[in-house]
């Protein structure tokens, strides 16, 4: 078990909060930035999981017991690569959306809205509950 120092804890909190805030935006570019920031947060967390910072990472610099845990670094490296790949994918997707739609907004579920409209229309016309449900399914 290792505990994190305060600076890192605050930094992590900031990264996660900022990331999630950006993810909740409409524009895909902001969401992309949010994912990047969240990814940084997660990777920093992985690094911190390996113990306190400042220990030598390379073989030969210190006694094995004094060295930093290489395992989280290996995991973080893999995760960084994955985040990088998905970031480029999202970039390409945002570009495609911009080409096709003229914007990169992430919209609501269209069909869901259609069904909700249908239901509202049915509710407005005076019918009793049961019929309403059967017709909503049509």
């Amino acid at each position: 078990m290792s505990t994190v120092n305060l600076t890192m804890a605050i930094l992590l909190g900031g990264l996660y909060a900022g990331g999630f805030y950006l993810i909740l935006q409409r524009s895909l570019m902001r969401i992309l930035l949010g994912i990047v920031i969240l990814g940084h947060g997660a990777n920093l967390m992985l690094q911190l999981a390996g113990g306190p910072p400042g220990r030598p990472p390379m073989v030969g610099d210190a006694a094995p017991a004094m060295m930093t845990d290489p395992f989280p670094q290996a995991m973080a490296l893999t995760a960084v690569v994955i985040t990088f790949a998905l970031t480029t994918f999202l970039l390409a997707l945002a570009y495609r959306a911009w080409l096709l739609l003229g914007h990169d907004e992430v919209r609501d579920d269209l069909e869901d809205r259609r069904i909700r409209r249908l239901e509202r229309r049915l509710a407005e016309s005076e019918e009793d509950e049961e019929e309403m449900e059967t017709e909503a399914t049509q």
Binding site: M1, S2, G19, I23, I35, L38, G39, G41, A42, N43, M45, L46, L48, A49, G50, F71, P72, M75, A79, I82, T83, L86
Partner: peptide, 15 residues
């Protein structure tokens, strides 16, 4: 997003 949460959980579990 869920993948990043997964990564976070892994970090916590490892810690």
């Amino acid at each position: 997003t869920s993948s990043i949460l997964f990564l976070t959980v892994i970090a916590l579990v490892y810690a």
